[in-house]
């Protein structure tokens, strides 16, 4: 293809996005668009399935049958999110095996929040409230992103995430209306999950790369700092209702800006966890690898069986 022809295709492509039309897998797209989307969607898919692990840690110990069933259903929803997202990613010409391989080798990233341990039952409440809450703020704009399969997956995902968030908040509310021990448990969970949740929006705007390109492709509509501010403004009043104290001495409502001012985020911790030095990085990847490797013979058996079945039907019909 000549440079002129490519330029022409690019113009058509850009115009389509500018008109708010969706790019579909069969459409022509620049290689960079494809690569960026594989990276972002797979990272998102990996986050969903690695995210099953910290919460899965409490399913067998959930304090009541109602909570056990709700948590199990929630973690299962996350598996469903992973499934939609892997499928969306596969339309860009990469296989599930390759995607897993990238996760297992450490080439692909997932949200660092899942490298923190879940130590008490209140962590399950805090994760639903804060982590799913932050995920919604990150993801709602993606319902209108330019790549069709991703946008459609996000619409389904977001509905379920808001349900998770309400459920998490309700766990916190129950604890905060309970005994002193339960309130302490809730406060301790907030203390541990607050700052990592703020880090979920990524580095500050001046440190963050490829934002401009992402804005153009509608992979991003607001900057990291804007989204973080939105999360804080939304969440602090919810903590007040619970009667919990957000662990930030500098947190204060600013009458002039109409937003909360907040303290310095410890970015060295963020980068440590990204680099693999969080409390649970190793366990999380180990658990994923084990599931995949222990399942290998099962997947092979299913394929061998399907092959045999195919041959049997061809024999019958042929």
């Amino acid at each position: 293809m000549s440079a002129k022809e490519i330029k022409n295709l690019e113009d058509i492509f850009e115009a389509k996005i500018a008109r708010d039309e969706k790019i579909e897998p069969k459409d022509w797209m620049p290689e960079k668009y494809r690569k960026t989307h594989i990276r972002q969607i797979s990272q998102h898919a990996h986050s969903e399935i690695v995210g099953m692990l910290p919460e899965g840690n409490w399913i067998t110990r959930a304090p009541s049958l109602r909570r056990k069933v709700a948590l199990l259903a929630k973690v299962q929803d996350e598996a469903g999110h992973g499934l939609y997202l892997y499928s969306a990613c596969e339309t860009l010409g990469i296989s599930r095996e390759e995607l897993y391989e990238q996760l297992h080798s450490g080439k692909a990233k997932y949200s660092s929040i899942f490298n923190y341990p879940t130590l008490t039952w209140a962590d399950i409440g805090a994760i639903g409230w804060l982590v799913d809450g932050a995920a919604i703020i990150n993801q709602v704009p993606l319902c209108n992103t330019s790549f069709g399969p991703y946008a459609r997956a996000m619409v389904r995902v977001c509905k379920e995430e808001s349900f998770h968030q309400r459920q998490g908040y309700e766990i916190m509310m129950t604890l905060c209306n309970g005994t002193q021990e339960q309130k302490d448990m809730a406060q301790d969970a907030l203390n541990r999950w607050w700052w990592p949740s703020l880090m979920m929006f990524g580095p500050t705007d001046d440190e963050s790369t490829h934002t401009e390109q992402s804005m153009k492709w509608k992979l991003k509509r607001k900057t990291n700092d804007e989204l973080r501010q939105q999360f804080i403004d939304q969440t602090v009043p919810q903590a007040d209702i619970l009667g919990l104290k957000v662990p930030d001495e500098d947190l204060k409502y600013n009458n002039e800006t109409g937003h909360y001012d907040f303290g310095e985020i410890d970015w060295s911790e963020f980068w440590q966890v990204v680099k693999g030095h969080g409390k649970c990085n190793k366990e999380r990847i180990k658990a994923r690898k084990e599931a995949w490797h222990n399942g290998e013979w099962v997947r092979e058996a299913a394929m061998a069986y399907a092959d045999k079945q195919d041959k049997r039907t061809t024999k019958q019909t042929g």
């Binding site: 692990l53 899965g56 199990l72 299962q76």
Partner: peptide
């Protein structure tokens, strides 16, 4: 069965076994 949630051989079997547990 709920011990297995998140550790199945594929996402599809993981979801199915969790359904049974539920």
């Amino acid at each position: 069965l709920s011990e297995l949630c998140g550790h199945g051989p594929t996402l599809e079997t993981d979801i199915a076994l969790t359904n049974i547990a539920l």
